[in-house]
Amino acid sequence: MKTAVGVFVLAALATLFALPSVLSAYYITLVLPAVAYAIALLGFNLLFGYTGLLSFGHALYVAVGAYGAAVLSSKLGIKSFELVLLLSGAAAVAAAIPVALLSVRYEKIFFGILTLAFGMLFHSFLFKFYDITGGDTGIRVLRPSLFGNEFKDLDKTAFLVGPFYYYCVGLLAILGFVMWRIVHSPFGLHLVASRENRRKSEYLGVRVRFFRLIAFSISAFYCAVGGAILAINTGQADPELAYWTHSGELVFMAVLGGFANFFGPLVGAFTFIFLKSELMGLTQFWRFWLGLTLIVIVVLFPRGLVGVGQDLWTRLHKR
């Protein structure tokens, strides 16, 4: 099984790296947000799948990443994407800590509602404080430099589907590896124990609240990285990123792919982005079909697409 996972990961990465030479630029600009969401979902699922805390407000941290990229690039003139990622991530962690301090005292629906409320607060802040946030139009995001290279000879699309795309796939690989280590670490074990049975884990010395706070912060950092990529892709940070339906989309992706599996949310991110864009092209009732998909997944395949894949795999191997 371990080698199967390794082969799967290498194949997926090789495919992602090879895509620009196969697909048109249009499709690559679709893969780019999928990569961004995949990174955000890695963080989101540390909290949801592993810690058992379902947040309905994680779009907040995606938006912090996007607005971080916008403010840093167009207001403060910072071009280095590495610096933008670190500072936006740090801002998201700073925003997450007070929210987490309050929310991790609760579980289940109470945790969900609290995170939702904070997300809505932030959305109205972005919307109302026009002078700082640009209100409903948001803030422009300028093209960053990657490792100090500005790629001035490339136009916007060529930059995005070229160097920026490879950079982001590289980021996904690195951050994916880091998350893999985290969930398999002693810290990750304690998170899962607190999810399975809070009281028992406390009697075994697990510092449940503190560890949940750390998990929350890590997830915010990942979401901010995803948000910064999204903002650079569209060239704009706008308040819709922080809207609660966007938080709902993160949940959708995790459930679609299967939150019980490390790779589920990643599969969910890619599937969701393509499903959504294809449906939007086909019909104006795309929300209806997305909703129907979610119902089918929850009722028939509660372990998500990855669960379906695993069942097929075992069935094939039994024969």
């Binding site: 670490s185 002693p186 990750g188 304690h190 560890f211």
Partner: peptide, 14 residues
């Protein structure tokens, strides 16, 4: 893990 005080190890495989 808690008895050995290793709960805050984030990067080593348990």
């Amino acid at each position: 893990v808690s008895q050995e005080g290793k709960g805050l190890r984030f990067f080593s495989a348990v």
